[in-house]
Design a protein around this nucleic acid. Sequence first.
DNA 1: GATCCACAGGAAGGGTTGGGGG
DNA 2: CCCCCAACCCTTCCTGTGGATC
Length: 338
Amino acid sequence: MITNPRVLEDDTPPQEIVHREGQITHLESVLEPLQRGQRVNGAFIYGPTGAGKTCTAEFLLDELAESADVETHLIDCWPNSTFTAVCRRLLEGLGEVYQPNTPTDELTMQIREAIDKPYVVVLDEADQLADQTILHELHQNPQVTMLLVANRHDEFYSHLDQGVHSRLVNYRDVEFRRYRDDELVAILVDRVESGVRPGAISDARLREIAEAADGDARVAIGILRNALETASARGASTVDHGTVLEVVPSARREILQKTFSKLTRDQRVLYQILVEAGEQRMGEIQAAYRERVDDPSARRTLTRHLKKMAHYDLVGFDGENSARRYWAATDELYPETA
DNA sequence: GATCCACAGGAAGGGTTGGGGG
DNA sequence: CCCCCAACCCTTCCTGTGGATC
């Protein structure tokens, strides 16, 4: 049934980017002066997960690298949130040797010297940067064009310090909204055409998958793959309605599991507490946490964890200051660890 | 409306870790 | 093998603010 498993992985780039023409045109026009060797400030790309931000950014980088004399690079700031970590990725991308324990000002100099022609860098998950010095540094380099990618526009800008903020004012904003169902169907069709035996899955099934995915392309592709694998394991020749409905939870759980695996012990305990107790305030969470852990971390650390988990969409919260309440975003129990 | 409380989140300092050089 | 240094994560301290209470 599946002829090319690779195209059913959510991190495989699509044959062609569908339904992002507006954003692509906009970004191309922003980057266009690079073709004539002129300086370009950059852009701020924002929207929910699974809306095609990273995918589109990668596409633009490839396109640029082919058409103009520019160096391009994409850095995921989620695992590279510190100044040094980003510098390290930058240097590696520039073909330089990164020497551990180099003082930060030397790293800065090394990067300045290594950038000897126009350089376009995508900082994916830019809202995860713990230190904004790198934004400052890259911005003031006339050779560098930054494409910043994050989930929420206002949240990102409000966390910038004044100096950086005022410099990014003239960055162009490019919004990616959730995909509509018909757009998700088009994305799935693209995958099916290049990786699935013709006739194995009908348009009606693809539409059901799109509806269940709730605007998230990554989820949609996950459901598609699960449905095909399940049907084919049963020896069926086509995917039926029941199979789609049946695999939705496991496809979602699969994505959740990936996220779970990145959590620390403290984060797992916090999540468990929220699943079991429902909506909680910080004081209650901390009390429950202290009962379960021998060497509890401080309150400040816990709020940091919760914030981070909220970014993963594992935890939700609402309210300001003393009115704040946290809850688990799903009711999926943390898988037992041996 | 004054006061207190609970909390968020910034800033600064310390402990720990790990690589490099003597 | 030991010391130094940088990084990084955590803690402590602090300020600001919304909500509750009287």
